[in-house]
Every structure is written in structure tokens, then in C-alpha cells.
Amino acid sequence: MATQKKTAEVDYSMQEKILALYELQKIDSRIDEINKVKGELPLEVQDLEDELAGLKTRVENINAEVEELNALTKQRKREVDQAKIQIANYKEQQNNVRNNREFDAINKEIEYQELEIELAEKRLKEYAAGVKGKKALLEEADAAMKEREADLVAKRAELEGIEAETQPRVEECTAQAERAKERIDERLLAAYDRIRRNVRNGLAVVTVKRDACGGCFNRIPPQRQAD
């Protein structure tokens, strides 16, 4: 809003706008140089934060799998207990059978329940092995998290120290940049910002030296310079 109001009140000439753009470029370049001191620290901090988030998600998933295995273990144990009760009841019924056919039928039921117990116990062993494996994975993930957290604390402290040292200069340059923007209309500012985002060196406005662009160093024909 401040930029719109200022440019509406004062009709700056194209020369003044271009000079303001060049001044803004020099200020932004100074800010870029100051930020270079940080090096790869911001990216390293972000990478560590992302890795920690991934590890936390992994731990949550493993814990959920352990809970599921524990729930299945309880279910199978209940099934074993119920099967044993059924077997006891069937054996008691065998004492009161009237013929061999009834005895054989009850005996088959007992055999079926014994097979159910055998299958459930097999599953219980599998669940126990699964829980043991998951706990080993949890220990690895927890160790990795502690290591990454220590790295993150160190990197953050280093980055915060640099930011605290450079912040006054960045704020001063930012204030200068805002004053320069007051003499530039929105269309030029938008083009300037777009070019800066699309080039590696951040140079959107440069001088012409020896018939070459001061940013990309490509030769500029005399007619283009005159235009």
C-alpha cells in the first residue's frame, strides 16, 4: 500500500526509476552477500528437521504395529483358553455317551479344538518374534533420533549465532531497499523480482561494460544499447 501511495503522489521519470532499480539491486546484492555467510546451514537445518519428522513417523508406525501384534496375542490367548475349556467339557461328555458314534463325534470335536490350540500357539510364536523384531527397529530409530536431535541443536545454535550477528546489517539494508522501492512502480518491481528469482547470481539490473552485460557477460549489440 505504501508503494502504491508513494508512486501515485510522485510521478518519477524513467531515469529516476531505473536508477532506483539499480540502487535496489546493489542493496539486494549486499543482503545476498551477508546471507552467504550462512552457507548451507539453513538447508542442513531443514534437512535435519525433515529427517527427524520422518523418523518420528517411522517410530509411530512401528509402535502401532507392536500394539496390533499385542492385541492379536491377547486374542489368540483367549482362543486357547476357550479351546481348553471346550476340550474339558467334551471329555466330560464322553463319560456319558450312549454309543460309539457319539463317542467318535465328541472325539473329533476334541481333536479339532486341539488343532485350534496348536495353530494359535504357532501364531503366538510368530507374534512374539514380530514384536521382538519391531522393538529392535524401535531401538535403532530412537538412537538415530537422538543423534539427529543433537546435530540439529548444534546446527541451529550455529545458524542463530550467525543470524544474530548479521541481523542489524540485514535490517539496515532492508530499510534502504524499502526506500528505493518507493520510487519504482509495481510493474517494474514485479519484473525485477521475477528476474532475480530466475537467475543464480540474483542480478536483475546490471551495467553494460565493454559492450557486454555485467550479469551474464553476453555481448550486447550497439543498437540494443541505444534502445
Rank of each mutant, 00 (worst) to 15 (best):
Q82W: 11
I87A: 00
E118N: 13
R123V: 05
Q46R: 11
E121L: 11
L48D: 07
E51A: 10
L72Q: 10
E68W: 00
E65K: 03
Q75N: 11
K84L: 15
E79T: 11
Q113K: 09
L69W: 00
N96R: 12
E49R: 06
V80N: 00
E44K: 12
D32K: 07
L115S: 11
E102A: 07
N61R: 09
N100L: 15
E67V: 01
N100K: 15
L119K: 15
E33V: 12
Q113V: 00
E49Q: 09
L115W: 08
L41T: 05
N70L: 04
A88M: 14
K74N: 06
R76Y: 09
D32P: 04
L41R: 03
N63L: 00
E60H: 02
E92L: 13
K77M: 08
R98N: 15
A53I: 12
V59I: 15
N70V: 02
K91V: 08
D81I: 06
R123K: 14
L119D: 09
T73L: 01
N61F: 04
G54E: 11
A105I: 08
D50M: 10
L115A: 11
R123Y: 11
L41H: 02
L43S: 09
A105G: 04
V66T: 01
E49T: 08
K38H: 08
A88D: 15
E109T: 08
I117T: 02
I31D: 06
N63V: 01
A105T: 10
D81K: 14
Q113S: 13
Y90C: 08
A120C: 05
D81T: 13
Y90D: 14
F103N: 06
L72P: 00
K77H: 03
L124M: 08
Y90T: 10
I34V: 09
T57N: 14
E60L: 05
E118T: 14
L52A: 02
E49P: 03
N99S: 08
I34Y: 13
I117W: 00
I110L: 01
K74F: 02
D47K: 12
I31N: 07
V97T: 05
N99A: 05
I106W: 01
R78G: 14
R123D: 11
